[in-house]
Nucleic acid binder design. Structure first.
Lengths: 148, 148
DNA sequence: TATTGTTATACTCTATAACTATA
DNA sequence: TATAGTTATAGAGTATAACAATA
């Protein structure tokens, strides 16, 4: 008689963030495909834009991916002239990666696509709710040590 | 002189939801591994709990995955006695899947793990903010036609 | 000998296509 | 002939481990 209705799995924050994160990432992938980029490529451009030029190993740690993945992502971006690889003259083992102007343009286009997708996703919210959601997500990201 | 600071990619709702969704899903996968379950297995249990017994094809549509994936997920859950497969006597092509009591228990354990992970993730928010975030995500999920 | 980047290989997840049985 | 489920195969994405160059 004092039983309470148990919270369904689909009502957990975990489930909803997981599903919505996958949904929006899929949609972003669709859009960035037009620029010849996977989502991880865009993540790499964004990391370089946000933290400045850095070595591949630093980038791997920042992006939380294996160093071998940075190689193939960087190969692709270098092939598109979106980044430059520069041997560090002080330590010739290190490749210093930096954005080119065209990489910066590409990132701007992808950022605009992301912005539009976010607006779509939150089109059922009013402006205050949308701003509140952004603040809450930003607070969590900050607490988790994520960029930016 | 009327340049405005452009919104960085990492500040978009799209990026933050994508990253946080992947993060929480990884953490959930770690926890459910102790029960012998992948996240998609839990999704299947949750779908059956939320919408009642259904055929594999219906489940594939609801979960937005290929029918062949439903086969292997169901094989695993049936092997654990978490679900039962019952041939529909009216149409012997159809397999009616339904939760067992032990499947319901398993789902309850995974739901508790998800709840705990959600609390952790939002530990930097106060109770009002947390409730607000849940409401906003629920509103978006509803608008996108997602469960529940 | 340790570190950075690279290459070779393998693993996980999932979809597509071919197939079987029922309708 | 069409549909539900199954099996076989393939592809995307990513990691691990072996290797090369430099320190």
């Amino acid at each position: 008689m004092d039983d309470v209705e148990p919270e369904p799995f689909t009502a957990t924050l975990t489930f909803r963030m997981g599903i919505l994160g996958a949904l929006i990432t899929d949609r972003l992938a669709e859009r960035t495909r037009a620029y010849g980029l996977k989502v991880k490529h865009v993540g790499m451009l964004a990391a370089l834009a946000g933290s400045g030029p850095m070595s591949q190993l630093e980038l791997a740690r920042l992006m939380r991916v294996a160093p071998s993945l940075v190689v193939s992502l960087a190969d692709h971006l270098e092939g598109m002239k979106a980044i430059q690889r520069l041997r560090d003259p002080d330590d010739r083992r290190r490749q210093r990666l930096e954005l080119t102007d065209s990489g910066r343009d590409l990132l701007a286009d992808c950022t605009e696509a992301a912005r539009a997708l976010g607006d779509d996703l939150t089109s059922s919210l009013d402006a205050d709710e949308r701003a509140l959601l952004e603040d809450l997500l930003a607070a969590i990201a900050r607490a988790e040590g994520l960029p930016s």
